[in-house]
Design a protein around this nucleic acid. Structure first.
Ligand code: MN
Ligand code: MN
Ligand code: MN
Ligand code: MN
Lengths: 219, 219
DNA sequence: ATAAAATTTTAGACTAATCTAAATATTAAA
DNA sequence: TTTAATATTTAGATTAGTCTAAAATTTTAT
């Protein structure tokens, strides 16, 4: 059947396909922390299992794409469970969800979703696809596309790396906050925000690139 | 590290060690549904990892025993979660718990135990060891050791095989019921019960052997 | 005590997933 | 358009976990 290893490759290819125009062997190798030789070999197996379209053009088939979305659904539901039900912090849940996402039981997934009352987003603000693989539309934009002077709501983070989330905690940044853009520095991509009408926060480009917002004008 | 495969072997050896005087290669092979050759080979690896005492005398070391109890703790906590929190039936949870028991995070295990309010038994009445590996004493006896005319409480099942549990459901038997032993047939080991002062139920030896009770005289 | 039966181990092979090193192929530069 | 750099694939090994068939050992029966 489909091993945990294959599930992780499919997930990696799905994520890379979201941003990159064409997914490369070396990009998959980098993301999986494996050698390009191993990836090349694995792509042959993925093709034989009907999970990618072609060995040259690394694109998921419908079957592969559906599998990826199922795994992402499970990952995000479990992260939500860990934070909402078991009182974990948002920086503690990713590595546990990496294990739980491979548990195979669609009944379990659906019961979990029901218990959590069908959440649309996980603790990092990421959208949770429904059981058919449809993502809710959250109409978010990266902080880098914000306009100075305007007001936004902090909606999600683009990575759930522990040290990145800790950095946000230290700056007092939390999902759902109102952010008014005080100024954006063209030179280095840094951003200065007013958080909840109270604190001013400076963010480097490195951080700003991984924050997503949606428009949220004051009423 | 310790693979899922090794965890399953350790669990099998632990369970066999509970009943059998000495655990044999063929008994482990039978339980794991593997060939004796594979088991023999694996025992070498378990010994090298310090999980069994000896290649000849198949006994868990303290380390192996603790590992087994940890896995059993996780298995039974997850089964409890599935039934109590996600509304699964008692015959649906075993195979899912077989997967969940291998998730590695002691913090997760402890948070789950706390959420469930430190249950002493799982949905099949089996004792849940605490995090140090101590089992609660439930002082149960097999139904076969019951005395005619006396009253007992149905406490646990010795196996969680789906078809066995369905059979109990069909007979209307549930944990916690008061059973009065009407008669025991020496010849074939069958038992006749009065369940909750209402229904008479006949049980074959095959079924009776897998039911555990504790004394529960009427007050 | 020896033979027969059962159990266990070893030998050799296979698959999945990985690696390094070498060979190809592709892309970018000169 | 050749050459140089980069990317990918192939070749050959390795490890974990499994198998079957054969050899060795242990247990049971005569
Ligand atoms: Mn995550
Ligand atoms: Mn997340
Ligand atoms: Mn079970
Ligand atoms: Mn159980």
């Amino acid at each position: 059947m489909i091993s945990t290893t294959i599930e992780n490759y499919i997930k990696a290819i799905f994520y890379l396909g979201e941003t990159a125009t064409n997914v490369t062997v070396s990009a998959v190798a980098e993301r999986m922390q494996n050698s390009p030789a191993s990836v090349s070999d694995m792509l042959r197996r993925l093709y034989e299992k009907g999970l990618i379209e072609d060995k040259n053009n690394i694109t998921l088939t419908d079957q592969g794409s559906f599998l990826a979305k199922q795994i992402i659904r499970k990952h995000r539901l479990w992260e939500t469970f860990l934070v909402k039900t078991l009182d974990f912090k948002w920086d503690e849940v990713h590595s546990i969800a990496e294990q739980l996402e491979h548990v195979q039981s669609s009944l379990l997934t659906e019961r979990l979703a029901r218990f959590l009352e069908y959440p649309e987003t996980d603790p990092h603000g990421d959208p949770i696809p429904d059981k058919d693989g449809n993502f809710p539309d959250l109409s978010i934009i990266p902080l880098s596309e914000s306009e100075p002077g305007k007001s936004y709501i902090f909606r999600s983070v683009a990575t759930d790396a522990k040290d990145f989330l800790n950095h946000l905690d230290n700056k007092g940044l939390q999902l759902g906050q109102r952010w008014v853009i005080i100024e954006k520095e063209e030179f280095d991509g840094s951003v200065k925000l007013l958080v909840d009408d109270k604190n001013e926060v400076y963010l480097s480009e490195k951080v700003a690139k991984n924050l997503n917002i949606c428009s949220g004008e004051l009423d």
